[in-house]
C-alpha cells in the first residue's frame, strides 16, 4: 500500500460516513429530549425539551459538517 492509497482510504472512511453521522446526531438529540420530557419531567415540559434538543441535534450535525469542511490535514 502506498501513501496515497492510505490517504484515500482514510478520506473515504471519514467522508463516506458524513451523512449517517449527521442523521444519527439528530436522532440522538430527539431521543435525549424525548427522554427528558416524558420520563424525567413527567410530561410537564412537553414538547419544549424535545424541540430544544432537536435543535441541538441539528446544530451538532451541521457542526460536524463544518468541522470536516475546515480540516487542513486531510
Amino acid at each position: 500500500m502506498g501513501g496515497k492509497h492510505k490517504e484515500w482510504m482514510t478520506l473515504m472512511s471519514v467522508f463516506g460516513t458524513v451523512g449517517l453521522h449527521m442523521c444519527s446526531s439528530i436522532f440522538i438529540g430527539v431521543g435525549i429530549g424525548y427522554y427528558l420530557d416524558h420520563k424525567v419531567f413527567d410530561d410537564k415540559t412537553s414538547p419544549w425539551l424535545t424541540l430544544i434538543f432537536l435543535a441541538f441535534g441539528i446544530v451538532a450535525g451541521f457542526k460536524n459538517l463544518y468541522q470536516l469542511s475546515k480540516r487542513k490535514d486531510l
Binding site: I28, I32, F56, A60, K63
Partner: peptide, 18 residues
Amino acid sequence: LPIEIISNLARVLSLSIR
C-alpha cells in the same frame, strides 16, 4: 457542551447502524 455531547453520542449510533 450539549452539542459536543450529542455529536459524540451519535458516534455510537452511526458506527453500529452502518
